[in-house]
Design a protein around this nucleic acid. Structure first.
Lengths: 244, 244
DNA sequence: CGTACCCTTGAAAAAAATCAACTTAAGTGG
DNA sequence: CCACTTAAGTTGATTTTTTTCAAGGGTACG
């Protein structure tokens, strides 16, 4: 799809864009580019990169490393998310962003995106909403890691990712594409890879899910939601606009 | 101080305000109002309240409750913070906001604040920055709870609050006003009150802090920062504007 | 056909939660 | 001002959860 059209679709969902905003957007779009899996797009402690991107395909993570060398993943980005809206107005990156899989993105000049956010109310509202929903997800993760135990944390994560993938048309209902190692699942949930392994097995043993490679089949949707104390309200899905 | 002057001071720090923006701000400000300790300002699941506030005095917390009845505090707000910027563009509140102490606030109509954020680039930038810094703090908390152990989590929290209080002129360097019960500290750090108690005692025993009622004296600033793996970068202090 | 990298499993150790008293401090109303 | 009440802090013993350590097993890929 045309790059401008993608941006339009992403930003147009909540409000009609003025013609001025449309022109500004058209002036923004370059072409799509590819990013290799494992690439680090933003590095903690550095200036945020001069380019922001709209993620079109693939998964990216945002994370922090503690002095002990432990990693905490603070967000998973799916297609349709803006990479690094979180640093849009900050001078120093406080965490890193990495491509988990090969990505396809639309690069946007960061200074230009700031201008779009400030000068065009329709675009500003869309970007605000995006950023606030990402913060909302982080709050839920904080509650998940801080106040639920292992099994529940993982069940919750699976529910969230399944719902998000469903919302953007990435996976079918009750199917979850999970290109994460068990170590990475641990880095999201604050557990060790070994414990993640055991808890996943427990969920399988309880008939809630089924594993087949990097895909998960949700056998008991209700049960998994209950096991994970999952309520999708925090995803604010009615305010999310898909690009697909 | 005059309410308009407070708002000006808060929003003016990063950019010169245009006269139009100044007028819009002047039209915003009502009077200061008081909020009793324990009042719930925003309730999870409800519409976010029609009023947003600039916190002038006192402390407020934002929190979520899990199905097990456990509470996770996701933010502590200090004077100079906007209460509930996080819900500014969201339709449903995904967490609650509560006054921890008696508060003094300047109420701002939520719809009006949205307009200010979108129509006046100087104000928009200030509010964006505020919201993004709050998200940055949440990321650090997530890493704290997910990837550090008890003693470290608490040391980290003490360092953060001390630094933030110092930045806004609320407490002197090496002194920390901590109007939190040990249970509330646990709700921030993902620990039980009992464990918080033991870890605090450990920090005292190690000569890092001294307790005197609801105040804490930091005896060894460097040592506490090391014990808490604390690096203030994520606070983006150079981008924060104080009202005091 | 190695060689990574990931997954799996068991046993032991550590961290944190739970359970159960008990102490201190801070009001409140007589 | 004192007895009473309630919330918060303290401490020890026990249990649960999670991590750590250790060792195999599977699989993809050059």
């Amino acid at each position: 799809m045309d790059v401008t059209a993608l941006l339009m679709r992403k930003l147009n969902m909540r409000r009609e864009l003025s013609s001025a905003a449309c022109e500004a957007l058209a002036a923004t779009a370059s072409t799509q580019s590819e990013v290799a899996a494992g690439s680090i797009l933003v590095r903690d402690g550095n200036d945020p990169t001069p380019v922001c991107s709209l993620l079109i395909e693939g998964l990216a993570i945002r994370y922090k490393i503690t002095s002990g060398g432990n990693r905490q993943i603070v967000a998973v980005e799916t297609p349709g998310d803006f990479l690094d809206l979180q640093h849009l107005f900050l001078k120093v990156a406080d965490h890193s962003v990495e491509a988990l899989t090969p990505l396809r993105v639309v690069k946007i000049d960061r200074a230009h995106l700031r201008t779009l956010a400030l000068e065009y109310p329709e675009i500003g509202e869309a970007l605000w909403t995006e950023a606030l929903i990402e913060a909302s997800i982080m709050r839920e993760w904080l509650a998940n890691v801080g106040r639920r135990e292992g099994r529940m944390r993982i069940a919750h994560l699976l529910c969230e990712l399944a719902r998000r993938e469903e919302a953007i048309g990435m996976a079918r209902r009750d199917t979850l594409i999970l290109p994460l190692t068990q170590e990475q699942i641990g880095d999201i949930t604050g557990l060790t890879a070994i414990h993640v392994n055991r808890m996943l097995k427990a969920l399988v043993a309880d008939g809630l899910i089924e594993q087949s490679g990097r895909q998960i089949l949700i056998r008991d949707r209700e049960g998994l939601a209950a096991a994970g104390d999952f309520n999708p309200r925090y995803l604010h899905l009615d305010q999310v606009s898909a690009i697909a």
